[in-house]
Design a protein around this nucleic acid. Structure first.
Lengths: 206, 206, 206, 206
DNA sequence: TATGAATGAGGCTTCATTCAT
DNA sequence: TATGAATGAAGCCTCATTCAT
């Protein structure tokens, strides 16, 4: 049993890895199932045992990869030396900066995620972990809100606006340095985010 | 009939119109050249006399359509009764609201533009008019800045951030009402934009 | 539940039933082994323990189903109140009418049998029973001939001609009401059959 | 123009001929489009310029081939030395015998037609000629009826019964010599047909 | 007996593009 | 300019069958 299970897991992740490789280099629509199975060392038909079609594997990849991104950021935040004393605002910015840095270092991933991300997929990704290691960012976010000394008005909309702003802005700045490079953009971006948070900040909790 | 007549004289615009129709209904990759030429009443080969390939016609459409969007917004702004007395901030928001409204009323257009827009294409679109009627929004924007009583720091970055925020946020709110519908989003969005503008506001001009 | 229980005990008949269901609804070539085993609640490999391949299960079904058709007809004939006094001709027509009625009420079966029947398969079906209940129609036919007061010339050819005529004619009349519906056809058909029998009728037995 | 037209006709008939060759040797379902285009010396895509799909080319072939069969039979009938003096019955039997002979000499054609013929397709085939040479057998049949000295009751049903009888019976006799070979069958078959005609014969025309 | 993951050939069809007219 | 027949690579997916467990 164990053997078979392991073998299956192995094939599936082999397909996922290969697909990611191709999607980020050739692009989704120019990647064929043949490309994937060929490099994964698996027969064509086998692909369809694990994924419904090309769209299915793409969605699973997006979920998995964005989840990883957040997991890494949250882990690093929590192991930061001054984590305990950081304010809500600082924590959010820490996470954002961490993710932005990850993306700047992995532009293929940025391209892949950005071209295929929508808030809907994103929310799913951060809410329903695919593998055991994937985290549920929604929970983390709420925990952060609970720890904050202030109430927040419409925290979900706030998060939404931040995510849209960051993802759009970074895409262009990182990949095309247009209208400016990432380092130039950061102050503007982070300043804007701080203000967005403050705007949604409500009264102090009693 | 008129249609045929017009086709004869303006095959190019007939192709553009038909392509737009298909791109917004079936999507770009599921639209074939056959679809386009068939409905445009033109032969296959003729397509290639006007456009290099499928990507070419798409890009031209994006440019043209986004330009139209801005032209309409600017025109309506300028014919607003209180135009003269509106502040820079109000004018920007007027334009944004106008465009958002146009997109909410034309979701096919929204889908088409959003899926294919990047800051690069966008800047091109607003800088290099395709047809004679197309405006150069960059010029308009600079004129607005000139008329403002304040200096602005990095006005291009400011515009960039605004555009990214608005386009991302509206896409989700209009098409999926997620995380909230457009009307619910607007106050948050516009408030954020006002703050972004103020943040970039410099000293009064002398 | 009963179904699962029964499946466990009679996987073969479960496969036969499911296959029949699919063959008569989707057609033979569009039915896959997956369809069959999936709905029969059996593993893929198990199929091949009972049948050589797809053709094998089809042939077994045809044999079984046509045998059933004749068995029912013969049973009803024999339990008819006036069975003892019926002439050979009447008995043959009784059987034919009974079968035609069964087929008219079960058009899926008609389609299935007609599309896949040939005289060869048919003869096998009526000669070599598959299950214990299946009858050997050849024996029944010869018994009927023996009881008749006349000799018959080439009775096998006669039967052959009748079967070909009936099967072809009914297929079209029942399924497509073309060139006429079944009830309109019957008088012509039965009259023709009576004449065919008389033509093959020889001298009275001594 | 002429040149192009001729070229097109050429390709189409090349495809038809090749398809017929494969359908009659390998069978319909085992013949692939690749087989056809490969041997026709045409590109895959070209196939779809002339036929909707495999079923389309099959139907066109059936129509054409059965029409040819009848055309040949009717032509030979009309050039028979005693044509003028032949009775209606004799003429029908002449045509049948001619067709049966053609099929006995071309068993591939017999297999192809028999496996794919239904009264519906058949009627279409004999009513709506595909090429200019194809005849309309319905017209011929009615002309023959008109010339006969007798009225006929339900002549269409009569023809239907004859066709079903002949096609079923010959298929088995020619291809499998089962239950007897063609020559043995003929007397029975033709005798039956004569009787069927007489049964449908009405009063003499005045 | 029973399983079901794996296979991989092969099916059908689409489509951007070319080129002779 | 304009045509549209022809191309043929490439795409996606299905499926009967096997075999290690």
């Amino acid at each position: 049993m164990g053997k078979l299970e392991v073998n299956k897991r192995h094939k599936e992740s082999s397909l996922l890895n290969t697909a990611f490789e191709f999607f980020t280099t050739k692009g989704f629509s120019k990647t064929s199932i043949s490309d994937i199975v060929g490099n994964a060392g698996v027969a064509k038909g086998t692909f369809y045992l694990y994924f419904k079609d090309k769209y299915d594997i793409r969605n699973k990849l997006i979920c998995h990869k964005s989840s990883q991104l957040f997991r890494t950021a949250v882990q690093e935040l929590e192991s930061a030396p001054d984590f305990q004393t950081m304010s809500f605002e600082d924590r959010i910015l820490y996470i954002i900066d961490n993710i932005v840095t990850q993306l700047a270092e992995n532009q293929a991933l940025l391209t892949f995620i950005a071209k295929n991300l929508s808030w809907g997929v994103f929310k799913t990704a951060l809410t329903t972990p695919v593998t055991e290691e994937d985290i549920n960012f929604a929970d983390v976010y709420h925990a952060m809100l609970d720890e904050a000394p202030y109430e927040f008005k419409d925290p979900e909309i706030m998060l939404f606006l931040i995510v849209e702003l960051v993802s759009g802005a970074c895409y262009s700045a990182i990949l095309y340095k247009d209208p400016c490079d990432l380092e130039t953009l950061k102050p503007h971006l982070y300043e804007t985010i701080r203000m967005m948070i403050r705007t949604h900040q409500g009264p102090e909790k009693h």
